[in-house]
Design a protein around this nucleic acid. Structure first.
Lengths: 277, 277
DNA sequence: CAACATATGGGGGAAGTGCCACATCATTGA
DNA sequence: TCAATGATGTGGCACTTCCCCCATATGTTG
């Protein structure tokens, strides 16, 4: 099978899905298949993938090499295994913008000082922040509603991790609900670090109403609010606007915002930090 | 390799640890090393283990075969990967009594009825119960302070999972503290299902004061209290006695208790259920 | 149209792995 | 003490995987 230059992952995906005439799977289709298989089975054999997808072993090996580079899989001799907790629905969002998120996380981790109290909202980007904090931070307290974040932070024994109560969201891996909100409102924190589904001129929004409510509570409760979002979130619109830019002290992203978003940030006095990657 | 009757894991382990004269790692030491490595890295190469432990590749392969049989690792071509979330300190306890705990879990899962509200304490045995409930139960609500249990239950979408707040215990994977206790005391439940470090004539005890306090709160709060414990817990003594037998309605175990324990159970009117395996 | 980049397949040798039979050594138990 | 048992190592052999180079097909670009 044949593939073009691949200018951008999104573009490739679109072009591929358009032309799935009778022949075999496209490259991105194979990658998705591999990831989804990995959510079910902890390990895969490259040879089995090759026969299952009807391509040569060499092609699968190259696929695995790419996915490993994106940190979406863990390479083994003869196959692949899942890298860490690979929550089904988080995969699609995690797979994109890995490098951007790592850069953003590095900046955020440098902002955090020892002995601070943080609130960390659930999400893919904040999860990267947590991993970075686990590697760098010292003697901080983190309040979170995300299991993956708590587990990632646990690698650093100098971090005190406080978990919120609530109903456990099976697919997203965090707790939510009125108890969660009430719990957040009982804490005082130096900073809240939250993600978003989209950020735009009208504020910060999230596709999940429950997650948005929790983000909003964290933002209101902390002395300083930081939003982390890669440029893919710019001008995205989703269900709930959970905070206005006037409430946000800093936006850490990977590309300079423009247009309505930039205007809103300027008017609200939100500091914009662009991480280099 | 040659394998005979394989009397009991405990007996083997004892014999081995007794004879660690100057030479290389004993079999159990290698196994522990493999498991601990696996908590750090998601995958291992058999060849690397062989050189690291100073044994032949064949020996490592045999080790991996055993560990796979115990479901403590996942075999891959050329190495091993972790089977599911593999909490560091839980490993040592999980590795023992697998069959016994599975049998106990099966019995407990049959006791639970649809639409019930359960409290599930943190622990290795209760984790097995959770896995069984995830496979069998329908429309139940589970209140727990253990991340692994919540995650295991999430496989079943008809289960409503409520997580307690508190401080996250990095190595044990559960939350604890005054908030946890307060949270438990705010619920009403049909049953509490808790584990223990030891059970004896004087009650149910736990080596972890915090965990014991939570167990105790669950037992007092639920309409019916069930203790799950394999026979290795009989007459074990640990730090905190968190409940008396008069508070416990049922003990589910794998062997008929004797002596002081049996007497205490009889006097307290605790129903003893012996699971067959 | 030519030059080029990308994606894939194929070949072949080198290295790694799995499996098996057998040998060696220490411990156990009668 | 001697035989049985279990743990480990060794060597051989088949199979799998890796990796490098090159051929091919198909879009893209100049």
């Amino acid at each position: 099978m044949v593939n073009g230059p691949a200018p951008d992952t999104d573009a490739v995906a679109m072009r591929k899905s358009r032309r799935q005439d009778g022949d075999r799977f496209s490259k991105t289709a194979r990658h998705k298949h591999i990831i989804s298989q990995l959510t079910a089975a902890p390990t895969l054999r490259a040879s089995e993938l090759a026969t299952a997808l009807g391509v040569s072993g060499e092609t699968i090996r190259r696929d695995l090499m790419e996915l490993q580079h994106q940190k979406l899989i863990n390479r083994t001799y003869g196959g692949a295994s899942r890298p860490f907790a690979l929550e089904p629905s988080l995969v699609d969002r995690k797979r994109l913008m890995i490098a951007e998120r790592e850069a953003i996380s590095a900046v955020v981790a440098d902002i955090v000082l020892p002995n601070e109290v943080l609130m960390l909202g659930a999400g893919a980007t904040t999860f990267h922040v947590a991993r970075r904090l686990a590697a760098k931070a010292r003697d901080i307290t983190v309040i979170t509603n995300d299991f993956a974040i708590a587990t990632a932070l646990a690698a650093n024994s100098s971090i005190r991790i406080l978990c919120c109560p609530g109903r456990y969201h099976s697919t997203e891996g965090y707790v939510f609900g009125t108890q969660t909100i009430a719990s957040i409102n009982s804490y005082e924190a130096n900073r809240a670090i939250v993600g978003a589904t989209g950020i735009g001129g009208r504020g910060i929004n999230d596709a999940d109403e429950e997650a948005g409510a929790i983000y909003g509570a964290m933002v209101k409760r902390a002395a300083e609010a930081i939003v982390v979002a890669d440029h893919g979130k710019f001008e995205q619109r989703a269900l709930t606007v959970f905070a206005q830019w006037t409430e946000i002290d800093r936006l850490v992203t990977d590309r300079q915002p423009e247009g309505a978003l930039a205007k809103a940030l300027r008017e609200a006095g939100t500091e914009v930090i662009v991480a280099q990657h």
